[in-house]
Structure formats: C-alpha cells, structure tokens
C-alpha cells in the first residue's frame, strides 16, 4: 500500500482562471496587493455564506497563491468580511470587532438572504464593498482581488 499522505499529490486541483467582476469597489487604504489577511464574522446569516466562505478555502480556489489568508482574530486582519445583516444582539459584537481591527482596514459586507439591520444605519466606517444576496465563492474572490488591484491567474 502507498504511503497515504502521498495520495493525490499529482492531482492538479487549483484552477488556473482569472477571477473577474463588474462589481465596483471603493479604495482600500494601504497596499495589500501581495498579502491580505481576512477575518469573517457571521452576524446572523442563514449559514449559506458561512458555507461559501468555507468553500472558498478549498483547493480549487487556493487563495494562498494570491497571498490571501484567513486570520483567526480581527486583530490580525486587514479586511473584515461581514456575512449577513446583523440581528439585534449581534450589533454590539460587530461594532466591537470593527473596533479591534488595526488601521488601515476595510469592510466588505455581503448582505445574504435574511433580513436584518443595515451596516450604514450602524454608521460603520470604511465599507469598501457591498454585495447583495448570497454570491458564489468565485464572485467573492473576484471582489477581494479587485480590492487589492489584482485579477488572479
């Protein structure tokens, strides 16, 4: 039997495509074109966005080759991805998470499919991009790459 950690070593799972979007984005302060650390926060979405972010970490997208990493704490993050519209009880934790981000930072809001508060009503600053509904991982990645002025491939 083969030494199993070698299983699939020849499989080329990473996709060699360009991730492009027509979506407009605001300017993200600072230069993150070679390295961007992301923290995601769920504020009450239906779990679809959580699963899509999980899918974005799969081998097909291979975000590491773009220098995109997922941080374990907002204090290590350059970009905060807010998943969903905040429920009443998540407003305070969300504002505190934003407060913990080191400057310069950007906020990428994906609204999701369930109703809730607006981030604009909460006066959250530095919102660099807003997506409606539940976009696919390729669309999310395209927006992130556009924010750091890259196109992928």
């Amino acid at each position: 039997m083969k030494w199993w950690p070698l299983y699939g070593i020849k499989k080329k799972l990473t996709e060699q495509t360009e991730y492009l979007t027509h979506h407009t984005v605001e300017k993200l302060e600072g230069n993150f074109s070679r390295s961007l650390h992301i923290y995601t926060i769920d504020v009450g979405n239906s779990n679809v966005l959580n699963f899509d972010i999980h899918a974005l970490k799969s081998s097909q997208y291979n975000t590491h080759k773009f220098g995109i990493f997922f941080a374990a704490t907002p204090r290590h993050a350059d970009l905060l991805i807010v998943l969903g519209c905040p429920t009443r009880k998540m407003i305070e934790p969300l504002l505190e998470t934003v407060n913990q981000l080191p400057k310069p930072y950007g906020i990428f809001w994906i609204k999701g499919c369930s109703a809730g508060m607006s981030l604009y009503d909460l006066k959250v600053k530095n919102i660099v991009s807003v997506l409606d509904g539940c976009p696919e991982p390729a669309e999310i990645l395209a927006v992130i790459l556009k924010l750091v002025k890259r196109t992928g491939s």
Binding site: G8, K57, S58, S59
Partner: peptide, 13 residues
C-alpha cells in the same frame, strides 16, 4: 491536512 484538502475539494465539487 491531506485528508481535509481532498475532502474540501470534493465538497466544492
């Protein structure tokens, strides 16, 4: 890591 990477690819597929 090997197992989880392959499974994540299968999940996305």
């Amino acid at each position: 890591k090997v197992l989880s990477s392959h499974l994540s690819a299968m999940f996305e597929e």
